[in-house]
Design a protein around this nucleic acid. Structure first.
Lengths: 337, 337
DNA sequence: ATGAAAGCGCTAACAA
DNA sequence: TTGTTAGCGCTTTCAT
């Protein structure tokens, strides 16, 4: 069933059918009704390819993310896809893994699909080395690029992010105000937002005149699901390296869960002897007893804003190139502030 | 840059370029080389729409799932997308939520996109009432439908699932063998696989001659992230309804985590006084101390098999219509068997 | 081994 | 208000 069949049955030209299909004003109501009836009757659906060929768009957005099974990224994808769909766009998902090469490859794959835009979910897509980000510039030359949780200055690149720096700083300062003297910072990524969090932590110490010891910044290099690995890591830090701490600020909830298990295994009372702060405010923060205080970076708000911005760009509405949300610590039993 | 430009520059016809592009055998090596060079030089990429129009396929698979932010479904999507990409297919993601109507709508959306097949992730897509499944039959009339974790008998519908019945029965029997007398079954969904698990539990009791009390089958109706809700639910069961139990078998890990928190809050020793079994073997099973024994239903294997089957169907290779994997209990600290 | 040309189904510019 | 028609870029016969 094509537009030709419909036009024949309705006794009009294909142009008229097309007008009806696209809601053009220049159709006599009676004609419109006649055509609509035929369309309904035969359950005709226009061919998306042919339409795409003509318009050079299939109303499809590419979503690039390192790992759709990551709790945080999965949530982001969920919000973004939903919002895009509400705006009449499809979402092509492409998980790139954490390697540079496959990242570029995936991007090219999406571009060759003629997506109308590419959303990059997660701060992993922007590196420190400008050369490594060239692929973003290249892509931005053909379609608008939307960055979630990353900051990058380039024409046709739009950023929506959370002020991780400030959120981490605030949380750390709260711990200091509550009397913590030896705060360990536990992280696992050097991505853009990872660095911001770290800097926020350091700045909190600086502001409160607490000397910064290098050993109090620890990077866990294991897999992001390896909670017991984190526990062992902390055990090693304490038992073998002699590092002492009365609070742990982490860059991700799973690290905080690991810290929680470390405390439990060593019969360290939380929050009495050890306070723990997570990041992302995910379900993992609810899994332990007591529950973990975690920094919420307003993921849903960010995602909705990102899509809003994107739609603005695609419809040539004036839109801000950068939107920054502020995060906040959700206090639960793992801290007493 | 189109195929015409390339053909002109290479001094051949578009047909030849097309042949080169599609790896046809009927091209003289020298001609092929000549064309290839031009293609490389100009970085030409064929237009996916035009190709789609001709072939009536853009090598795209629709992935339907209720909620991409659900831990389990997110993992499934991850595996499936990856495997599809390796096979040269794109993935269009569409999250339907848990309502019937939006489910049908999403499916139609995908079909109107001319996807080559639709993968339905999760057992929610098949209902008890045959009428409610009619939409699957309808869709199967136009493209192959792949079901993950659901069983449905219909031409052009292919199922890949885990034997949840057996896995649950086995785990329950192990608990009985270990001396548990009062086993509570805690679930939260009546989906196809939800029913299988429940039936497996019941059958274990039957097999071991343990009387089945209705009150020992409890459905938690809250949100699947509401861990504290589960804890409170169990508190209520015990304190107000006077239900006693020495083991809890759950249909999802988050329920097991809730049970764990219930035990901790009430100073019930796990596994000594209460044994707990989760389902899905997700990261949640690792969050508590002790870690939770959980049934692994081999999600990755299932996903890879599903894609393998799909590729088979699309290439008209002979393929089984139903593949069943068997699950197994991964024992951790929450049980002593 | 290569080229010419007919679609594929739709949109949009132009004519009437 | 409606119809005619030229693309859109590619695949695929059918000739050569």
């Amino acid at each position: 069933m094509t537009i030709y069949d419909i036009s024949k049955k309705a006794g009009v030209s294909i142009a008229t059918v097309s007008r009806v299909l696209n809601g053009s004003a220049n159709v006599k109501p009676r004609t419109r009704k006649k055509v609509m009836d035929i369309i309904e009757q035969y359950g005709y659906k226009p061919n998306a390819f042919a339409r795409g060929l003509g318009l050079n768009s299939m109303k499809t957005i590419g979503i690039l993310c390192a790992d759709a099974s990551d709790l945080y990224l999965a949530k982001a994808i969920y919000y973004i896809e939903q919002s895009l769909r509400e705006n009449g766009y499809h979402s092509v998902l492409c998980c790139t893994g954490y390697e540079m090469e496959s990242r570029k490859e995936s991007l090219n794959l999406l571009l060759s699909q003629h997506v109308d835009s590419v959303v990059m979910v997660g701060s992993h897509f922007i590196m420190n080395n400008p050369e490594d980000n060239q692929y973003v510039n290249d892509a931005a030359a053909s379609v608008p690029i939307m960055l979630l949780n990353a900051d990058y200055d380039c024409p046709n690149v739009y950023c929506t992010l959370c002020d991780d720096y400030k959120a981490t700083q605030d949380a750390t300062e709260k711990l200091i105000a509550a009397g913590c003297k030896k705060i360990l910072y536990l992280y696992n990524s050097n991505s853009y937002s990872g660095q911001k969090k770290l800097a926020g932590f350091q700045n909190a110490l600086l502001t409160k005149d607490i000397p910064l010891k290098k050993e109090m910044l620890q990077c866990f290099h294991g897999n992001h699901e390896d909670i017991d690995g984190v526990k062992n890591f902390l055990n090693d830090l304490h038992d073998n390296k002699g590092i002492e701490f009365d609070a742990i600020v982490t860059s991700e909830d799973f690290l905080a869960v690991g810290a929680m298990k470390y405390a439990r295994a060593n019969k360290i009372s939380v929050p009495k002897s050890l306070q723990i702060v997570g990041y992302n405010n995910s379900i993992l923060a609810h899994c332990s007893e007591p529950a973990i205080s975690s920094i919420d970076n307003r993921l849903e708000d960010m995602c909705l804003q990102l899509v809003k911005t994107l739609i603005g760009v695609l419809t040539s509405t004036e839109t801000p190139q950068k939107t920054i949300f502020s995060g906040e610590l959700i206090e639960r039993g793992s801290t007493k502030l």
